Amino acid sequence: MKRRTFVAATTSLIVAPWINRASAQQPVTINVMAYTGLFQDRYTAAVVEPFMRANPGIRVNYSPLPNSAAMIGQLRAQRAAPQVDVVILDVTVAKVGTDEGIFSRLDAAAIPEINELYPNARFPNVGGVAVTFDNLVMIYNTDAVKPPPTSLLDMATPGMRGRVAIPGLPDIQGMSLVMILDKLNGGPGVEGRFAKGIEAMAPIAPNVQTWEPRPDVYAPIINGQAAIGIGWNARAQVNADTSNGKLAALIPKEGTVFQINVINQVQGAPQAQAAQRFISYALSAPAQKAFTESMFYAPTNAKAQIAPSAIDRTAVKFLDRVVPVDWIAVAGVRDQIMDQWRRRVIPLSR
């Protein structure tokens, strides 16, 4: 080999790896879409910021939206040119997004933490996997409601006229309430489109002040604008602390249902590898522990070692009171339930 050719070849062998390493060290930004407000604040502190400290080459831009319906709407608008890499939203909407090709299927070979999850954190027809478990609770103003309520039907008493706040359908808090009432009244469940639950809303609906509490259901109950309603345990627990006990939460005697948030990778994500790295971290035992202890979502990673003081404020100790729900089956009849809600429930509150 001529000396000039040898030098050029040798130089390329030395320089090329350096170029690759330098390129790999260039910071990338991933867009993570998830819930706004309290979730954003606590999730950023417990998961996003520690992830960025552990992965200085990846920056996370948190894109907040108020609910899963708003998220899927934005993702549909971006379908031709995705701008988001990772999305955290409700499992029923994740199923819709998977069916529409918006979410890709997560692979345990690339994200080994998937193998550490509880069995009910994985779904055969959903691309993502569960990242949090939550549950429905009754919430009330401790000054306005004495003695404390025990039953969902306490929202139907004459003294609660115009004082009830319920996030109505399509919000799944309203959907969860209907499903619990359906079970209570001997309904056939998803096969009957929860008709018995829709029926059972008749005495509650006239007392409802708003089906769209703003900015969320917790604020109007804390400030006394409303007295009683339903919410999610995780947010209720934090609001109970920050309101100095003005708001309290409990599982009603009729029981509760789990709400499952799923973490998904967007099909065609601009930063797919970095997105998978973030998902791995979000599902890891340390991240799950940190978020549960910060906001009282039950963990989905079976290896997460949660402090008893935190796990006792989740539904884990009340599993015998959880009404089983096939959320994927519910997603298939969501439109029919919505139709019944609009025709038979909403008019009663006017």
Rank of each mutant, 00 (worst) to 15 (best):
E100K: 04
T92I: 13
R277E: 03
S243H: 05
R122F: 11
P167W: 10
T292A: 15
V47A: 02
W18Y: 07
P206M: 00
I222W: 09
L247M: 02
M338K: 04
Q265S: 03
P188N: 03
R76W: 14
D171H: 07
G162A: 08
T242W: 04
D143Y: 10
R235A: 05
T150P: 06
S23L: 07
A298V: 01
K246Q: 12
T92C: 13
M201F: 06
A22R: 11
V238F: 08
F194H: 02
L169G: 07
T300H: 04
V262M: 09
P158C: 00
P17E: 14
M179T: 11
I221S: 07
I328Q: 14
P148N: 10
V190G: 12
M179R: 09
L106V: 03
V257E: 08
V217R: 06
P112V: 13
A202G: 03
E100N: 06
A236I: 00
A22V: 03
N141T: 04
A81K: 15
L181K: 03
M338F: 08
A94E: 10
P148I: 03
A285K: 01
G229M: 11
I230V: 04
I311P: 00
F258D: 13
F39C: 03
R105I: 07
A205K: 07
V178T: 08
V91M: 10
N20L: 10
D143T: 12
A46I: 12
I58K: 01
I263V: 13
A80S: 15
V60G: 00
L38W: 04
D90Q: 09
A16F: 14
D107C: 04
N125P: 05
I166C: 08
D41R: 03
P112K: 09
Q267K: 08
T98F: 15
R105V: 07
S63P: 15
P213L: 05
G162L: 06
F291E: 13
A290S: 15
I111W: 12
Q25Y: 04
Y140T: 02
A108E: 14
Q276S: 12
P286L: 09
A81T: 13
S243E: 06
V15P: 00
V60Q: 02
A46C: 12
T132C: 11
R321C: 11
I166M: 11
Q83L: 13
Y118L: 08
A77D: 15
L319R: 05
A304W: 10
P213H: 02
P308D: 01
V91G: 14
P299V: 10
N261E: 07
R235E: 05
S294I: 14
V164G: 10
N264D: 11
R313I: 00
A8L: 13
D154G: 05
I221N: 09
P347Q: 12
I260G: 04
Q276H: 12
R4I: 14
D99Y: 12
A304I: 01
P56D: 03
R122N: 12
E254R: 08
R161D: 15
K196D: 00
L136S: 08
I166G: 13
